[in-house]
């Protein structure tokens, strides 16, 4: 069978709408979009920061006037409750990160390297429990922690935090180990390492970049967490988020002090965004 050769109509889509409209208009448009994107993501943060350095009298029209002051920060930091809350959040974030990573690294490794009934069940379990809305187990946890007399203590908040991290982190850890070629460990086994040695000396160091990224995110997530803090802590062990929320929802008028508190609570996030962005991006891409 032969087909007569034919000439193809040459596709020549005309200039785009923008090029026809005005040459270079497309680039201007993209430029405007970029500026708009920057504005959208910076503006709320900037407004908050500006508010926090305006005197109480100057917060209502923050774009007018040029008085700036650090008085708000001084005032906030003089309130023992806020310092206490920040300290608590810091301790909690650090503890939760260390313990959750420690607990999940093994389970992630197992999910990645072995197959069998236990692994299948475990994987299904963590998938299912990842879908459970937090409120559905935090509400009863209130009862559990009260009964165990650990309500409003570090332990009472730490354990639930770890419990939610277990599902998600095991999943992520599995991903880290999946991306490491197991033949390295096999080589280590042949070279005389025990299974445990192969894990500790070969697999773990290779997974370290991912684990580092995850630890930073985990720290931030715990620091930022609100629902648990709201339900499981009270006056004794306040967290920074719940303390702030109280400010906003209950008193809700001293915006200069509130902004200063919020900026303080935001500091770790700002630091990580600026200095640890590599880790944030790596952590989120998993």
């Amino acid at each position: 069978m032969t087909v007569e050769p034919f000439t193809l109509p040459i596709a020549r889509p005309g200039p785009t709408m923008f090029e026809r409209f005005a040459p270079g208009a497309w680039r201007v448009f993209i430029g405007l979009v970029i500026v708009a994107v920057l504005m959208i993501f910076i503006a709320p943060v900037a407004i908050l920061i500006v508010t926090s350095i305006r005197p109480a009298s100057g917060i209502y029209y923050i774009w007018r006037g040029t008085e700036f002051t650090l008085q708000n920060y001084v005032e906030v930091l003089q309130q023992p409750q806020i310092l206490h809350a920040m300290f608590n959040s810091f301790v909690m974030a650090t503890l939760a990160t260390v313990v959750s990573l420690g607990v999940t690294v093994g389970s992630g490794y197992m999910l990645s390297r072995f197959t069998g009934r236990i692994q299948k069940t475990w994987f299904a379990t963590i998938y299912v429990f990842r879908t459970v809305p937090y409120i559905s187990f935090v509400l009863p946890l209130y009862l559990v922690t009260t009964n165990l007399r650990i309500y409003d203590t570090y332990l009472g908040l730490l354990l639930p935090h770890i419990a939610v991290h277990v599902c998600f982190f095991s999943w992520l850890m599995k991903g880290f180990f999946d991306s490491i070629n197991p033949s390295m460990e096999h080589a280590a086994l042949i070279d005389g390492c025990t299974r445990w040695g192969a894990f500790r000396r070969v697999a773990l160091p290779s997974a370290m970049p991912g684990i580092a990224a995850l630890s930073i995110l985990s720290w931030l997530w715990t620091w930022n967490e609100f629902l648990f803090a709201l339900i499981l802590t009270g006056q004794r062990t306040p967290m920074i988020t719940s303390t702030m929320a109280q400010f906003v929802t209950e008193t809700g008028t001293e915006w200069n002090l509130m902004s200063a508190t919020a900026v303080l609570a935001m500091l770790p996030a700002l630091l990580v965004t600026i200095f640890g962005q590599k880790y944030v991006i790596r952590g989120l891409r998993m």
Binding site: I34, V37, L38, F41, I42, A43, P44, V45, I47, L48, T51, L220, W223, N224, E225, F226, T241, M244, A245, V248, W255, M258, S259, A262, A265, M266, P268, A269, L270, V272, T273, I274, Q277, V280, I281, L284
Partner: peptide, 23 residues
Amino acid sequence: VRTVILLPLTVAPVITATMIRWS
């Protein structure tokens, strides 16, 4: 831009909501 878009992901939702509420 790449750095700035990380802000929403690192700032606590509580603070974000506060910012929006104030704005």
